[in-house]
Design a protein around this nucleic acid. Structure first.
Length: 911
RNA sequence: GCCGGCGUGGUGAAAUGGCAGACACAAGGGACUUAAAAUCCCUUUUCGCGCAAGCGAAGUGCGGGUUCGAGUCCCGCCGCCGGCACCA
């Protein structure tokens, strides 16, 4: 008696049912060909973003999305679907390694402990995962296939003709290493000294590492890159058919940053450069090979550029070429050295070194004034033949476009600022509607071309087109498309990641044969980064030596690698011969089998409807996770998926058909949960006090899934009270203080009103689950329970379906009550999880009469009952006969009467 | 700066262009109880009138508009949140 008695005995039946589900493997989904697989069942794949198992365990934010997917999974099973609902661990990554550095504890040990903790917490919430499908990215049986996929990428190239990834064997050029989708490049990378590793652009936030917040500097290093830019167009275009939030699609489109425009070549003025002949090539890109797209320059261009060097710029506004009064090169542009005149050399060198010492953060500080230096050389504007000065300035970035721009101060904000700072000429070439030429300086939108000879009078879009034609015809340039998206920097100098299946011999990289996978990292005592950029794996000399002639690659893959394809492994996690079996992939990642939908055993007569099987184009049917992965994981995974699809391994080009982002859960103080604020709520304490079902239901009852919302223990209590009312609807306490089935439950015909509320509840809950409106589904079940709490007798017929409706939300209590009910009544067979989702009968929702709202001039004045089949005229007549209304309209002129059948009549009076 | 999203009671929120505030929380009152807890019932947008059942007015960030009718659609502001940020 020391503890307070629970309002219902969840502390007894929560563990009981969790044990039964585990024992009976209730939620195991059989694969095609396996025992228990029914080809007539449609599939439903509902996926959570698998967690990184941190040492802190779960907080109440994690299970928000998990609860939503669990409700969906349990609902779809009750609807007769074969549901794939798996969970696993994204366990490579920095925290475990940082911990290892601090304590010497091997990351594998930490990971094992954290996984066990996470798993027991998830089980305590009663999630219906198929634990037979659990995967762990750090398990050699898993990362064997991560490495295998890397090899597929390595052995593939992007064929610009077919716009698809193809095996490297179809490449007809000289050196396949130039075009592989995985390649090595010396690039200016984001080096993070604090973490001792390089980072992808996506992992750098405000000049600091996303993990740990350490400063990040640019540094040239030899790194593995994945050619994601080749897929930029498809990654944008194929978003269209996905059922994702528009905001996430937009985020991805913006991140990819497609810009249409033109590449324009500006000849260097022969008289001005120190030694123009010394400049070779027409673009820095051909030598650097940073961009796949431009590697195939035409021979024409090459010949031309040898005759007279050009500076190539990219612009989205070729129509403004006549307004280009100067050029700016990035300070790192390879032409700067060759073009700088002796007089300007000192100033140029000084500027370049000052820029080099700046961090990215300082350099991109928008509020600072434009800086730059004239390098003494001139270029020729190909449109008007004018000699224009060449400058360098740090507002031009080497990493985008060609690292050089034409300065059009009339119609570009930055150029205008720069030109004003250094008193360069400003020529308006686009006239704004309703403004004079001079007033149009600084006008950025589409207008009409002026001061542009052949373009004069043309609207901007036509002017662009005409200029591009002219450039192409005269060999000064061509239409071009550029992206903000960079190729994916794929190597890390860390211990706790997948080793590359790559060896080096004579300074050339080569792939290991598939038979040598997995490549397991060496045992190390010292996990510390070397600090020099050399990876920790290099310390394992024995391991590194592959043969007398060849050494192993010592970089490791980034954390994203494992999560790029885990949803595929879930389809067939034990397969030792393949990353995913063909039949399993086709079934789970393919489209829903329409035939199965039609022949499914659910009742479907005309008046009984449910919507368990909306049209689904397939793939992962529902993917729930946080917005923080909008441009990282979701873009990388789509990229890998497309490569594997092109190579013929997958059924569909997109992995995740429907995506939903859950909103974050704030602490009780309305602030983001964090250790430092001390406002973290753990599911453990909630479950201990209120039970798993109250926890689940509160997570869903708080508000719309997608919305940010604060936690409230009071709110949990309210939901717990609801579940206690459900309990007492079925159970009463006897003299001995034991719970027994209530005598009020009888096998009697429900009253009409009872039946009506039952069917209204089935309809509402079904619809709300489909739209993920779990909060209003629970509200409706509360209404149902409130309506029955004081009833003298409760018909069995209405209780059974409601338990099934409740089951996805509160699986423990509904299972327990179902079992108790059926010990007495023996109606129906088996556990609640084996039942069918109830159907509702629309005709039972209708009365003979409807209450009509009567408005006068749009204000509600009365309510009257009108027969359902009444005509508009009849309704009007009844409404006008109402004494209240009579009073209000007396002596006034009715100008109009609006009738909304069965709902409303609005009488409009003349004033 | 640019691009999104969101502003409804004391709080979380509900509302296919058709009764604003469902369902909860909190608060207040009552029943049961020796008492408390638990449970159950009632009140609770604001203002005004009324002993009362009730009646009237205003009300969804602010200002306009469309409409018989706007929380919902359109235009212009303000505020908060998120993303991008010298991307040529």
């Amino acid at each position: 008696m020391s503890e307070r008695r629970k309002p219902y005995p969840f502390d007894q039946f929560d563990p009981k049912w969790q044990a039964i589900w585990e024992e009976e493997q209730t939620f195991h989904a059989p694969n095609p060909g396996e025992k228990g697989f029914d080809p007539a069942q449609p599939k439903f794949y509902v996926l959570d973003m698998f967690p990184y198992p941190s040492g802190a365990g779960l907080h109440v934010g994690h299970p928000e999305g998990y609860t939503a997917t669990d409700i969906m999974a349990r609902y779809k099973r009750l609807c007769g679907c074969n549901v794939l609902h798996p969970m696993g661990w994204d366990a490579f990554g920095l925290p475990a390694e940082q911990y290892a550095i601090k304590t010497g504890q091997h990351p594998a040990v930490t990971t094992r402990e954290n996984v066990a903790k996470f798993k027991s917490q998830l089980k305590a919430i009663g999630f219906s995962y198929d634990w037979q499908r659990e995967v762990n990215t750090t398990d050699p049986r898993y990362y064997k296939w991560t490495q295998w996929i890397f090899l597929k990428i390595y052995h593939a190239w992007f064929n610009p003709e077919t716009k698809r990834a193809e095996p490297i064997s179809t490449f007809r050029g000289d050196d396949p290493d130039d075009v592989r989708l995985a390649y090595v490049a010396d690039v200016a990378v984001n080096w993070c000294p604090g973490l001792g590793t390089v980072l992808a652009n996506e992992e750098v936030v405000d000049g600091k590492s996303e993990v740990g917040g350490f400063p990040v500097v640019k540094r040239p290093m030899r790194q593995w890159m994945l050619r994601i830019t080749a897929f930029a167009d498809r990654l944008i275009a194929e978003l269209d058919d996905l059922d994702w939030p528009d905001s996430i699609k937009l985020l991805q489109r913006n991140w990819i940053g497609r810009s249409e425009g033109a590449e324009i070549r500006f000849p260097i003025d022969a008289g001005s450069a120190r030694d123009p002949r010394a400049v070779s090539g027409d673009s820095p890109e051909t030598s650097l090979k940073t961009n796949h797209k431009t590697s195939g320059e035409s021979p024409d261009e090459a010949r031309e550029s040898r005759a007279l060097p050009n500076i190539t710029v990219f612009t989205t506004r070729p129509d403004t070429l006549y307004g280009a009064t100067y050029m700016v090169l990035s300070p790192e542009h390879p032409f700067v050295d060759k073009l700088t005149t002796d007089e300007q050399r000192t100033a140029v060198e000084a500027y370049r070194s000052s820029v080099a010492s700046k961090s990215d953060l300082e350099r991109t500080d928008l509020s600072k004034e434009k800086t730059g230096v004239f390098i003494g050389a001139y270029a020729i504007n190909p449109a008007n033949g004018e000699k224009i000065p060449i400058w360098i300035a740090d507002y031009v970035l080497m990493g985008y476009g060609t690292g050089a721009i034409m300065g059009v101060p009339g119609h570009d904000e930055r150029d205008l600022e720069f030109a004003r700072e250094f008193e360069l000429p400003i020529v308006p070439v686009v006239q704004a509607p309703g403004r004079t030429a001079d007033e149009s300086i600084g006008f950025l939108d589409d207008g009409m071309a002026i001061n542009s000879e052949m373009l004069d009078g043309l609207a901007t879009p036509e002017a662009k087109r005409k200029m591009i034609d002219w450039l192409e015809v005269n060999g000064h340039g061509r239409a071009d498309i550029r992206y903000k998206l960079r190729d994916w920097l794929f190597s890390r100098q860390r211990y706790w990641g997948e080793p590359f299946p790559i060896i080096w011999q004579d300074k050339k990289h080569g792939a290991l044969p598939e038979s040598e996978l997995p490549v397991v990292p060496p045992a190390l005592d010292d996990f510390k980064p070397t600090g020099t950029g050399e990876p920790p794996l290099a310390k394992a000399k024995e391991w590194v030596r592959y043969s007398d002639k060849a050494d192993r690659e010592t970089n490791t893959m980034p954390q994203w690698a494992g999560s790029c394809w885990y949803y595929l492994r879930f389809c067939d996690p034990q397969n030792e011969a393949r990353f995913v079996g063909e039949a399993a992939e086709r079934y789970w990642m393919g489209a829903v089998n329409d035939e199965a939908r039609m022949t499914n055993g659910q009742a479907s007569s005309s008046d009984i409807r449910h919507s368990c099987f909306p049209a689904q184009p397939g793939g992962v049917d529902l993917y729930v996770g946080g917005t923080e992965h909008a441009v990282l994981h979701l873009l990388y995974a789509r990229f890998w998926h497309k490569v594997l699809f092109d190579l013929g391994f997958l059924s569909k080009p997109e992995p995740f058909q429907r995506l939903v982002n859950q909103g974050i859960i704030l602490g009780e103080d309305g602030q983001k949960m964090s250790k430092s604020r001390g406002n973290i709520v753990s599911p453990d304490e909630v479950i201990e006090q209120y039970g798993a079902d109250a926890f689940r239901c509160y997570e869903m009852f708080m508000g719309p899934l997608q919305q940010m919302k604060p936690w409230s223990m009071r709110g949990v209590e309210g939901v717990a009270r609801f579940l206690a009312r459900v309990w007492r609807l079925f159970m009463t306490e006897n003299q001995a203080g034991e719970w027994e089935l209530s005598a009020a439950i009888e096998e009697v015909e429900p009253a009409k009103a009872q039946r009506k509320i039952l069917h209204a509840t089935i309809k509402k809950v079904t619809k709300d689950i489909e739209t993920l409106s779990f909060n209003t589904a629970i509200a409706q079940m509360m209404i149902f329970v409130n309506a029955f709490t004081s009833a003298a007798t409760i018909p069995l017929e209405v209780l059974r379906p409601v338990l099934i409706l409740l089951n996805p939300f509160a699986p423990h209590i509904s299972s327990e009550l179902w079992q108790t009910l059926h010990r007495k009544f023996e109606a129906g067979t088996g556990e609640i999880t084996a039942q069918s989702w109830p159907a509702y009968d629309e005709s039972l929702l209708l009365e003979n009469e409807a209450e009509i709202v009567v408005q006068v001039n749009g204000k509600v004045r009365d309510r009257v009952m009108v027969a359902l089949d009444a005509s508009d005229e009849q309704a009007k007549k009844i409404v006008l006969a109402s004494p209240k209304i009579q009073q209000l309209i007396e002596g006034k002129t009715i100008t109009k009467v609006v009738v909304v059948p069965n709902k409303l009549v609005n009488i409009v009076l003349a004033n």
